[in-house]
Simulated assay, not measured.
Amino acid sequence: MFTFETADQKEVRRFRIAQFNGRTATVKSGGATITGHVRSVMEKEASIPPRWTITIVPTPPKAQAPLRPASRARPFAEDYF
């Protein structure tokens, strides 16, 4: 799990919507990009300005699907002309 804090209300709203809809969210932290499902968005009530702690469960990257082979009819098209 990846946990971070933010004070950006727009970012928090985006993560709450992703959590509610079950979609993945992407966050850039330093040089790393983490994509996963939002597990929790918790507000720290004692902080000024308001801050939120967001927890993301990373999903493994999808394996590349093999490319389809090229059409075999095209190389022989020259024989018909």
Rank of each mutant, 00 (worst) to 15 (best):
V12C: 00
G36D: 02
R14Q: 07
T53V: 11
E11S: 03
F20E: 15
A46S: 15
P66K: 03
W52R: 07
T53A: 03
A7E: 15
T55N: 10
V41Y: 02
T24G: 04
K28P: 06
R14M: 03
S47G: 00
P75T: 10
M1Q: 11
P61N: 00
R16L: 08
V12Q: 00
G31N: 07
R23C: 00
E11W: 01
N21H: 06
P49A: 13
H37Q: 09
G30F: 07
E11G: 02
A18H: 04
P61A: 00
I54S: 03
T35F: 04
A7R: 14
Q9Y: 11
E11V: 01
R39G: 07
W52I: 04
D8H: 10
I48D: 15
R74G: 08
A46P: 01
T6Y: 00
R16Q: 14
T33M: 07
T53R: 12
P66S: 05
W52F: 14
S40T: 14
T59Q: 06
F15I: 03
T24F: 01
I48K: 15
T59P: 00
F2Q: 12
T3N: 04
A73S: 09
S40P: 04
T59A: 07
A7C: 10
V57A: 14
V38M: 06
I34Q: 03
P50C: 06
D79R: 09
Q19A: 10
S71D: 14
I48M: 13
W52M: 03
D8A: 10
K10M: 03
T24N: 10
R72W: 10
T24Q: 11
A70W: 05
K10T: 05
Q19K: 15
R68Y: 05
V38Q: 06
S29A: 10
M1C: 03
V12Y: 01
A70L: 13
E43R: 15
I56R: 08
A77D: 14
T35D: 11
K10S: 11
T35G: 08
T59R: 09
D79V: 02
F15P: 05
P49R: 12
E45A: 08
P69R: 06
Q9H: 14
I34G: 02
G30Y: 08
T3K: 12
S47A: 08
T33H: 05
A18G: 02
G31W: 05
G36R: 02
V38T: 07
